[in-house]
Structures are given as structure tokens and as C-alpha cells.
């Protein structure tokens, strides 16, 4: 049997036998080299209660080349692209080692959710949000966990995951009062959300960014 297949089969079996890590691997199609991994969001983080899915591709020269991984589940995190799910993590690049496995790499992703590294961001806007106001960032990350990863509804007192429509202001990590304020000037709500998100209109930044500056951005076609 081909060495790569032998190794991958052993890793999949090892993961199945280990119930304690709560890490799951599933085949996506017929190929053993395209998998879907998933793990629970770490406790004590805004990702707690969610389950996060990762697309895994095993390259031809595995394990001498790193696994290719990206989030399928949308994640609000400085080192994960909020649009594409691309991940910025050294072991998926130049720090890859053949001692790493599907399981240990997924565990590293789980740890990345615990300890963001905003100085080496994948998503610059999210990283700015994290640096500007940690509490507002965590609120947004928790909301994304609820919407995309099946986590508890942060607004429901009992923690249940109630249905309800998606709150675009909360998704963008903004304050309703700020959005209302500029919407009242006659701008379209979606555009206000987009501009305030790009300007990182949060925390201490709110006093630094003048109303004129925001209006100027809103007037751009």
C-alpha cells in the first residue's frame, strides 16, 4: 500500500479510537485524501458551545508537506478569514513537521481559537476589532458562534438557541445606536453597517472618528 494512504488510515483509526478529544473526522467523497474534521469550540472562549467544521486536503507528498486546512464554519477570529475560512497558522506553513497528524493539527486549530495572534492576522478587520475593544470583539465572536456554529444565543437569558432573525448590526460587531444615528441622516442601513465596520467604529475609536469622516465615507459611491 502507498505510504501516504497507510499513514492516513492509521491516523483516521487513531482519531476514531480517541473519544476524549471530541475530534471527529469524516470522508467528504470517495477519496481518503479529502476529509472533513470537526471539533467543539474551547470552553471559556466566545466559541464555546459551537461545533466547528474544517475542510482538510491531504497533499500528495504528505506527511512531508503540510495538510491543507480551512474552516467550513464561519468563524470570527483574527487569524481566520471571515470570508473564506483561510487560516493563518505557522504549522500549516513553514513550521510543518511530519510528526504532526490530522488529530494534532485539529487540536492546534482548537488552541488557536483560545489564543488569537492579532499581530499576525489573516483577517485585518477582525484583528483591528480585537485590538480596539476586546469585549465588543468577544460579543461578536459569540454571536457568530450562535449563528454559524450552533452555539447558544447570547441574548437568550436561558442560553437556549432560539431562532429569530439574524441581527446584521451584531454580525458586524457594531452598536445599534451608532447605526441608527447615521441611518437617521438618510443613509441606507446596509451601507452604514458596511462603512462603520470598515472604519472600525468601536470602543475608543468612536471618539477619534469624527461624524464628518463617517459621512464622507458614506457619500462615496
Amino acid at each position: 500500500m502507498d505510504a501516504r494512504l497507510r499513514r492516513v488510515n492509521k491516523e483516521i483509526a487513531d482519531c476514531k479510537n480517541d473519544k476524549s478529544s471530541k475530534i471527529q473526522l469524516d470522508l467528504v467523497d470517495e477519496s481518503p485524501f479529502h476529509l472533513k474534521g470537526s471539533f467543539p469550540g474551547p470552553e471559556g472562549t466566545p466559541y464555546e458551545g459551537g461545533r466547528f467544521e474544517v475542510d482538510i486536503r491531504i497533499p500528495d507528498s504528505y506527511p512531508f508537506q503540510p495538510l491543507k486546512m480551512k474552516f467550513i464554519t464561519k468563524v470570527y477570529h483574527p487569524n481566520v478569514s471571515s470570508a473564506s475560512g483561510a487560516i493563518c497558522l505557522d504549522i500549516l506553513k513553514d513550521q510543518w513537521s511530519p510528526v504532526l497528524t490530522l488529530k494534532s493539527t485539529l487540536i492546534s486549530l482548537q488552541s488557536l481559537l483560545c489564543s488569537p495572534e492579532p499581530d499576525d492576522p489573516q483577517d485585518a478587520e477582525v484583528a483591528k476589532h480585537y485590538m480596539t475593544s476586546r469585549s465588543s470583539f468577544e460579543e461578536t465572536a459569540r454571536y457568530w458562534t450562535h449563528i454559524y456554529a450552533g452555539g447558544p444565543d447570547p441574548k437568550a437569558k436561558d442560553g437556549g438557541s432560539g431562532g429569530g432573525s439574524r441581527d446584521e448590526v451584531a454580525m458586524a460587531g457594531l452598536e445599534k445606536a451608532h447605526v441608527d444615528q447615521f441611518e437617521a441622516l438618510g443613509f441606507e442601513r446596509g451601507k452604514v453597517i458596511d462603512v462603520l465596520r470598515r472604519l472600525n467604529y468601536r470602543g475608543a475609536n468612536v471618539t477619534k472618528i469624527t461624524e464628518d469622516r463617517v459621512v464622507e465615507e458614506l457619500l462615496k459611491p
Partner: peptide, 10 residues
Amino acid sequence: GFQKLVFEDF
């Protein structure tokens, strides 16, 4: 701390 499945083939 290396897993056998990681080093046995090498």
C-alpha cells in the same frame, strides 16, 4: 512523546 504511528514507517 512521539506517537508510534508517526515514526514507525520512517
